[in-house]
Every structure is written in C-alpha cells, then in structure tokens.
C-alpha cells in the first residue's frame, strides 16, 4: 500500500496551504458543482481539530487501481470530535463503468440488479460534493477515495478534484512506530502490528462491524478517528498536523 512506503513522511503544512489551493481551483473550475465545492472553502491549517467540520467517507470499488477499476458505492457520515451524526449519513450505489467481476460482487454484497438500477456517478456528483463542501474528509488509507474520485471526475467532467484528507491508517502507522518487529522478535514469532481498519479499531475497544459496506466502513473510520484523537492528540491539535 502506497502510504507504507513513506511512513516517515509528515503531513505538509507549508505553502501553498489548502485554503489557497481551494481559492485558486474555485477560480479555475468550469463545472458549476465543482466551483461551488471549492467556493465553500477550506479551513486554515492552524484551525484546532475541535472547530473543524469533518466527514468520514468510504468507497467500495471493483479493484484497487483508479485507472482500471470503478466506484461501486459511496458512504459518508459527518462528524465533529464529540459526535458522529447519522441523521446526515449518505449512501449511494453507483453504476461502475467496467463489467462487475463476480468476486467483488460477493464481497460488497451488492447484486447485479442493484447495479443495473443504480445511477451513474454523474447524477449524484452534485449531492456528493455539497455533502463534502466546507468539511475535511476522513478516510482509512488515502490511496482509494481521493484518487478514484479524481479519475472518475476527469473521465466524466473533463476536470479532476483535489481536497485534503485525514488518513486514519497513516495515523495508526505514525502512533505505532515500532509496529514492525525486528529480526529477533520476528524469530520469536512476533508479527507486525496490523493497521487495517478492524484491527486498529480493536486496539481502542471499538466493536467489530461487518466490513465491505461503504457506509459501515465510513462510520467505522469516523469512530476510529474520535478514538485516535482522544488517545493521541487533543481538541487543540491544529488540523494542519494531520491532513495530507
């Protein structure tokens, strides 16, 4: 996974910051929906976490490569550091552009009928962007949601999308620097610490949720982020220390 190649990399707070990038992109964007999204702006990097509107997002996809595979479903749930708001949770099944492999159908629990009746991403993009507008997105493993959405929008609108994300998997890697046992411990049978979503949740006493449902996974990441902040950070931590 891409982020494991750069565990030492610290998020950048240097210029140009995300607020500036958003302002520039708002001027450039030609699609109205995208323009509105950028115009909602982005919080300054020094904003304390407690004041940042957040939204946890998860995609189910037909594979791992944004250039070959396609989005099947999107789940998102807004939150703050103290509460996760299920009344504003959203879940969409969208029609992938590529034929659905039998394999992934069983994993996601989504049937062909559901897929056939599902809208194309274009039809829900306005709703999706307005749910994200003004908020900072939380994902578990940043190699999926942002690149997939970027490619999907380039494909459909001719222009991609950029936005900051908080990566709960990267946080797990960062707070467990010793997670790969040295050769002696490996010899004694110690395994590397898993930073997958279910395993990470277990370390904070969070319950087991059935995996591979976009909305459940979004909720799972949202809970994990609340737990991580209470254990390792503080409400005063500037968002710029955590986003990518």
């Amino acid at each position: 996974m891409s982020n494991q190649k750069d565990p030492q990399r610290r998020p950048q707070t240097a210029t140009p910051g995300w607020p500036d990038i958003f302002a520039a992109l708002a001027a450039e964007a030609s699609d109205g929906r995208l323009k509105t999204f950028y115009e909602a702006g982005c919080v300054a990097p020094e904003t304390p976490l407690a004041e940042v509107p957040l939204v946890a997002m998860d995609f189910e996809t037909t594979g791992l490569d944004p250039n070959q595979h396609s989005i099947v479903s999107i789940g998102l749930v807004p939150l703050s550091l103290v509460r996760i708001y299920s009344r504003d949770a959203r879940h969409w099944v969208v029609r992938p552009l590529l034929p659905l492999h039998q394999q992934s159908v069983t994993i996601h629990g989504i049937t062909h009928t559901e897929i056939d009746q599902a809208p194309d991403l274009t039809e829900i993009i306005g709703d999706l962007l307005s749910a994200l507008a003004g908020k900072v997105v939380i994902v578990h493993h940043r190699g999926i949601e942002r690149p997939f959405l970027d490619v999907a929008m380039q494909w459909r609108l001719g222009e991609g999308i950029r936005f900051p994300v908080i990566d709960t998997m990267a946080i797990e890697a960062q707070v467990n620097p010793q997670r790969r046992p040295n050769w002696l411990r490996r010899l004694q049978g110690q395994r590397p610490l898993s930073i997958r979503l279910p395993d990470s949740r277990t370390r904070y006493g969070l319950p087991h949720y059935a995996p591979h449902h976009a909305l459940s996974d979004a909720l799972a990441s949202a809970e994990l982020f609340q737990a991580q902040v209470q254990h390792h950070f503080s409400p005063h931590t500037p968002i710029g220390e955590l986003w990518y």
Partner: peptide, 14 residues
C-alpha cells in the same frame, strides 16, 4: 431511531 442516533467515543476515565 438509528437514523437519529449520534455516536460518541469516550476514552476510559473520561
């Protein structure tokens, strides 16, 4: 009910 629930995590001792 489940669509109105708000979820909150509390660390031990808080």
């Amino acid at each position: 009910i489940s669509s109105q629930v708000e979820v909150a995590y509390y660390r031990a001792g808080t």
